[in-house]
């Protein structure tokens, strides 16, 4: 089955129905392995046991950015190639991306309370993720308030791409703003040199989260295709009546 064949929603639905059970099983297995490794991982010399929060926080942060990247590619698909599944993919990704961003924020905040002494500090990374979360919510609001799906998806595609250009600029600005305002006394997660005993569970957890994202995304795309069918049929029904 080639990529072009997937443009047909019916074929795509059939493929998703076949794939979903396998993906769900793989997700469960990856989480079982990842969680087992995470809980057997040694404590960090600086953070103590709270490093366990990182096994949730870091993959969630990666996926929050991955979600926007995915939506940007889908937006190109919508605007340039008018691929019929691109709209569906972008719309289905927004709530999932928002949920992972929220997970990143909440787990970060719960890690920050014991480590920094406050649930929220205007740290550059936290602030950038908060802005990302706000942008996800804005896109969801756009889908929520616009009735015509084609119209909403084209507007959303443009906003997603503008956001993709703007997010690095926002990140840069917030970094700059942060160094201006904050004393550099915060403990940071020891950057590239993470011990393998912590890195391995982290990567397995990241794989598990990625599989979870993929499974949920395909299922949400399936729902979205069905929702559009329902809409078409209801419009036909209204026409006939």
């Amino acid at each position: 089955m080639s990529f072009i064949d997937l443009a047909n929603p019916t074929r795509f639905l059939a493929l998703v129905q076949r794939l979903l059970p396998w993906l769900a099983a793989a997700t469960v297995l990856a989480f079982a392995a990842g969680l087992a490794m995470a809980f057997n991982a040694p404590d960090d010399y600086q953070q103590g046991a709270t490093v366990k929060i990182m096994f949730l926080h870091v993959p969630a942060a990666w996926l929050s950015m991955f979600g926007w990247a995915l939506m940007s590619m889908a937006a190109l698909g919508t605007l340039v190639w008018r691929h019929p599944l691109a709209d569906v993919a972008a719309k289905a990704a927004a709530p999932i991306g928002a949920a992972f961003t929220l997970m990143c924020l909440v787990t970060g905040s719960l890690w920050g309370r014991p480590m920094w002494g406050a649930f929220w500090v205007w740290d550059a990374r936290l602030t950038s993720v908060l802005v990302l979360f706000l942008m996800y919510l804005g896109l969801m609001a756009l889908y929520w308030t616009t009735e015509d799906p084609a119209r909403a998806s084209r507007a959303a595609a443009i906003l997603t791409l503008v956001g993709a250009i703007n997010l690095p600029v926002i990140k840069f600005s917030v970094d700059w703003w942060n160094t201006l305002h904050q004393p550099a006394s915060v403990i940071r997660l020891g950057a590239p040199a993470i011990h393998p005993a912590i890195l391995t569970p982290l990567l397995v957890m990241a794989l598990a989260f990625a599989l979870l994202f993929l499974t949920l995304h395909l299922a949400a795309m399936r729902n979205e295709i069905l929702r559009r069918r329902v809409r078409t049929l209801q419009l036909m029904k209204a026409d006939n009546a």
């Binding site: 609001a141 756009l142 600005s173 700059w176």
Partner: peptide, 27 residues
Amino acid sequence: ALSVTLRRGGLLLAVLVLPLTIPVLIF
């Protein structure tokens, strides 16, 4: 431009556009 195509203005657009202005505000 989006408020024309969406036939909707006001708060929704403020919600969509305001985050993009953060760098301008900061600098």
